[in-house]
Design a protein around this nucleic acid. Structure first.
Lengths: 350, 350
DNA sequence: CTGAAAGCGCTTACAG
DNA sequence: CTGAAAGCGCTTACAG
C-alpha cells in the first residue's frame, strides 16, 4: 500500500479532514487529540502508507531521530585492513541498531581521527551536517574532554563508553575489577597457585581495575604474589611474547596467565608452542576480550567477554531518553560474561 | 573556530555581503559565480566554520548526501550473535565509508528482513524516512526484483552486489569464474591430479560460475573429471563434513579440495583431523571467502578473497555519480585476491 | 553573473 | 481539544 511517489502529512490531513498540526500531534503522541480523531488519523496513516520524512522533522523540530556512534579512525581502519576479525564494530552496530530501531531512530556510524585537534574539527563538522540527537563516544575519544564539551555546548546528548562519571553524561562500562576477580578466581578454583598477570598498560584505567581484581583474589586466597608475575605487555604481541617467554623459562614458572587483551593472549599461545609446552596441560590461559579469533584458536580460549552490544544499546537508550527531555545521565555498568573454553584446566602437580 | 551555536548560510551571506543563493552556488560548485566572489565566500565559510545542514539541503534540494546500505537482517544477526567473526559488514563499512567521505556523503547501514513482503515494507519505510540518494542491495536482496523496482519507482539510484546485468543499475561483482579457475590452477600447478570441488548450492549463480572455472581448468590441463568429485555441501558445515568424509575414505581419494565457502572449508579441516590425515601433506585445501577465521585456522588456509570493500566503494561511487544526474549504470567487475597460505602444498606421491 | 521569492515537509509557539 | 501562521536552512526556478 501507499508506494505512491510521496505521501506527506498534508495528504493525511486532507484525507481525514483535519489540520496538519493534528496529524503531527498524533505522530508525536502528543496530548490534546480526541481519541476518535486520533484513531481516524492513525487509520489514514496506515492506509496511505505515510511515513514522516526525517529531514523535515528535524528542520523545524528539535529531534533528528539520529544517533551518531563515533569510533577511532586509525584503530578501526587498522582492524579492517588487517581483517583481524575483531568484532567490536559489529557488536556496536548490533546493540545500537537494535535499540535505535525500537524507538524509530537510526544509527549513523562515523570515524574520526585520534589527534585531538582533528578530532574536534571532524566531530564539529559531522554534527553540523547531521545534527544527531545524541552521540556515542568510544575509547579513546570517550576520554577526550574537549569532544564532550563540544557536544554539550551544542546541546547534544553524549554517551561515553568506558567512563563511569555520569554527571550530565550517559556513561556505560563494565565492572572491570569484577572481571579481573572472575578470571583469577576461576584459575584459583582450578588449583592454580602461581598465576601471572600480563597487563596492558598502566595508563589505561580499565587495566588497572582488572589488575586490582586479580590482586584482591590472590590476597583473598592466600596465593603467592610476586612482582615479576605482573608483566607489562603494552597490548602488543611482541612485547607480550617476550614477557611470556621469560616467565615460561623461569623455574617456579607460573602455571596460569591472565592476558589483558586477545593480542597478548595469542602471543602467549605462540610462545607456549615455541617452547614445546601445551595449553592447558602445562599452562592455563585466560583472555579479556573474546574477539572471534579466540574461539577459533587451538585450543579455544577461556575468556571474559565484554558486553559491547549491551553497552551501546544502553547508551542509545539513555541518549534517546535524554533527547526527549528526561535526564538519563549516570553510569550504567553492564554485566560481562565469562566463557570457559579449553585453555584452562585443573592444575595437576605431575 | 566557529563553534558558535549555529552558523547558517545566512551568516555567510551577510558576512560576505552577497545573497544566500550565491553562497549556495559556491557550496554546490555551480557555475555563474565570479572567481573573486567565490574566493571571498570560500574564505568566509572557512573563517566562520560554516557546515551545511544536510537535512535542510535535502528539503528543497534533490540530494540528501546519504547512501543507504542494506543487509539481510537474519543473516547479519546470526553472524553477530554467533560472533563468528565474519567481516562482511566491516568490509562493507570500510569500502563504503571511505568512498562516501570523499564525496561529502554519509553512509547509513540498515537491516531488512529476508521475507519479500516484509522486506518491501521495511525498505519502503526507511527510504521514506531517510530519502537516501542511493541504496546498495546485498544478497539476497540484490536478487529481489521488487526491491529494485521500488527504488527505481521512487527515483532512487540502486546498486546491487553480486549481479551483473547493469541496465539502469550499478551492479558490482567479482569474476567468479576466474576465481574458480585460479583456485584450480593453483592446485594443478602444485602437481595435484585429483581435485574435488565442494560446491555450495546449484541455485546460487555465483557457485555455478566458480564451478565452471574449476571444470575449465581440469579440461585444459587434461586432469581427470569425476562426477563424484563435485559434491553438494549446501554451504553447511554438517553436509560438507559428510561429503568430505566420503571422499577421504574412498580409494583414489582426491588430494585436493576446493570449498565454496569458509564454513565448508572448516568442515573439511575438521574431517581431515578426524580421520587422522594432515593438511597440507595428505590433502590440500582452498577456500572461497577469506573471513578472518581462515587466517587463524591451523594451518591458515589458502583462499580466494572477495573484494567486498572494493565492491561497496565502487557501488557508492556509481550511486553518487548517478545522483548528480550522470548515468553510471553498468556492471563493475572488481578484481579478487588469491592468498596463498599453508593449507596447500606441492603434491608428493609418497 | 547575481538576487528576490517561493517552497521542501514538518513542528513550534500562539490563538481560539 | 483544534487550527492558522510562521519558520527551520537550504535550493530551485525565475528574473534581471
Amino acid at each position: 500500500m501507499g508506494t505512491k511517489s510521496t505521501v506527506t502529512i498534508r495528504d493525511v490531513a486532507a484525507d481525514v479532514g483535519v489540520s496538519r498540526q493534528t496529524v503531527s500531534r498524533v505522530l508525536n503522541k502528543g496530548p490534546n487529540v480526541k481519541p476518535a480523531v486520533r484513531a481516524k488519523v492513525e487509520a489514514s496513516i496506515e492506509r496511505l502508507g505515510y511515513v514522516p520524512n526525517i529531514s523535515a522533522r528535524r528542520m523545524r523540530g528539535s529531534r533528528s531521530y539520529l544517533i551518531l556512534a563515533i569510533n577511532d579512525r586509525q584503530r578501526t581502519y587498522d582492524n579492517w585492513r588487517a581483517g583481524r576479525g575483531n568484532d567490536w564494530v559489529d557488536q556496536m552496530l548490533f546493540g545500537g541498531m537494535t535499540e535505535c530501531e525500537k524507538h524509530g531512530y537510526h544509527m549513523v556510524f562515523e570515524l574520526i581521527d585520534t589527534e585531538p585537534a582533528k578530532a574536534h574539527a571532524q566531530l564539529s563538522k559531522v554534527i553540523s551536517e547531521l545534527r544527531p540527537d545524541g552521540v556515542i563516544l568510544t575509547p579513546p575519544h570517550s576520554e577526550n574532554g574537549d569532544l564532550a564539551d563540544l557536544l554539550k555546548g551544542q546541546g547534544i546528548a553524549c554517551a561515553r563508553v568506558g567512563r563511569r562519571e555520569g554527571h550530565g553524561f550517559v556513561d556505560v562500562c563494565m565492572d572491570e575489577r569484577a572481571a579481573g576477580e572472575q578470571a583469577t578466581r576461576h584459575l584459583a578454583d582450578l588449583g592454580h597457585q602461581r598465576i601471572a598477570y600480563l597487563a596492558g598498560s598502566s595508563e589505561y584505567g580499565n587495566s588497572l581495575m582488572r589488575l586490582d581484581g586479580y590482586r584482591a583474589i590472590l590476597e583473598n586466597r592466600g596465593l603467592e604474589q610476586r612482582e615479576e608475575w605482573v608483566g607489562e605487555g603494552a597490548f602488543s604481541f611482541d612485547t607480550a611474547s617476550k614477557v611470556a617467554l621469560q616467565w615460561l623459562k623461569s623455574k617456579d614458572r607460573p602455571t596460569a596467565i591472565i592476558a589483558d587483551n586477545d593480542q597478548m593472549a595469542f602471543a602467549v599461545l605462540h610462545t607456549v608452542e615455541r617452547v614445546g609446552f601445551r595449553i592447558p596441560d602445562d599452562l592455563a590461559l585466560v583472555s579479556f576480550e573474546d574477539t572471534p579469533g579466540v574461539r577459533l584458536s587451538v585450543p579455544p580460549m577461556t575468556a571474559i567477554r565484554q558486553p559491547t552490544a549491551a553497552m551501546i544499546a544502553q547508551a542509545c537508550e539513555g541518549l534517546i531518553t535524554e533527547s526527549s527531555g528526561i535526564d538519563a545521565s549516570g553510569c550504567y555498568e553492564m554485566p560481562f560474561e565469562f566463557i570457559e573454553r579449553d585453555s584452562t584446566a585443573r592444575f595437576s602437580q605431575d
